[in-house]
């Protein structure tokens, strides 16, 4: 029962984050929305594991969290420097 309620809560939060990703007037709204969708995905996968009685999927959820983090860092780097290969030293933020 507890997991069911949590699943619905996560799904609603996922929907709200998606609406922000669709509407988001600025770039940062969308980046934050995508990051938040990724977090909700991690939570959803973890809860689904417990909901179906197979909590082995917890490792996968942790790996998703890492992928999400790396992806957001790469996107933010692109937004700030306009270039993936920039080291960030001395380059003027544009």
């Amino acid at each position: 029962m507890m997991f069911t309620v949590t699943t619905f809560a996560v799904l609603i939060a996922l929907g709200i984050a998606l609406v922000r990703a669709f509407l988001g007037p600025t770039v940062f709204d969308r980046i934050l929305a995508v990051n938040s969708v990724g977090t909700k995905t991690v939570l959803l996968i973890a809860i689904l594991g417990f909901l179906t009685g197979r909590p082995d999927f917890l490792d996968i959820a942790i790996v998703y969290a890492l992928i999400n983090f790396i992806g957001v860092v790469a996107v933010l780097k692109f937004v700030k420097y306009g270039d993936m290969a920039s080291s960030g030293d001395g380059g003027e933020p544009t």
Binding site: L18, A21, F22, G24, A33, V37, T41, I45, G71
Partner: peptide
Amino acid sequence: FAVVMLSGVYSLLAASMFV
């Protein structure tokens, strides 16, 4: 840019679906 962000969202949703 928004399209790229949303395709990332789509992949995450598809991954949840596969799980």
